[in-house]
Amino acid sequence: MNGPAETAAAPVATPAPLEIPVLELRHVNAAYGPFRALFDVSLTVGEGETVALLGRNGAGKTTVARVASGLVEPTEGEVMVDGNDFTKVRAHRYAKAGVVHVPEGRAVFGDFTVEENLTLAFSRTHDRSGVRNALTRAFELFPPIAQRRRQIAGTLSGGEQRMLAMARVLVESPRLLIADELSLGLAPIVTDEVYAVLGRIRDAGTSLLIVEQHMGHALALCDRAVLLDHGAISWQGPTEEAAEAIGAALFDAGAQ
């Protein structure tokens, strides 16, 4: 089980990591029934590393995020978490291993109140008083939802639901945080705030895998960028080089 990461044919552009990466996808193919979504995707997120996953609408970013948190089982290839084979493992084990995932859109329990949503999330790792502390911190982070702690989450506004989903994970520093469409639906001022918190979490040692459409923020935060195109990785490398490469790729495609 606990064997070291194999030195499988590493993707060309990835520098071979020295220590065991937190997350590693090896030659992953994924599909939704007959619809194929990923083709031979290999990707690593090292200890404390921050990776931005970029690509156009429908490129497969969400699918990569889902594979990385166990929601979608790859049809081929392997998923390793901390060097352990997690390929056929269910999502709750990923969560227990410290991989937390904020799905895109309104990822909340719509019939629960705001407080119940957070309690459910915190109660796995905290006792009663711990949950109360975590709630307090979550509400400090996002004052708008603090005023609505007894409101049914399904009736929150779109942005408030996003805040609630983020509050679930930003209070703690997990091992790996996967955030899909991070700033979607958030007011610019809130987006700034969320990125500030992410910066703090990164400094506390959390690895990040971030899917983001608005590249400015993502590139400022992350060490490395991965560009997906039609379900395959078309470029990856350090963010300093990324701006031009990615910008060119995306704008060319869109401008036609």
Partner: peptide, 14 residues
């Protein structure tokens, strides 16, 4: 209502 969320810059422009 937020038609561009989920689209990137280029797609939004299009």
């Amino acid at each position: 209502d937020e038609p561009s969320s989920g689209l990137d810059r280029a797609e939004t422009n299009a």
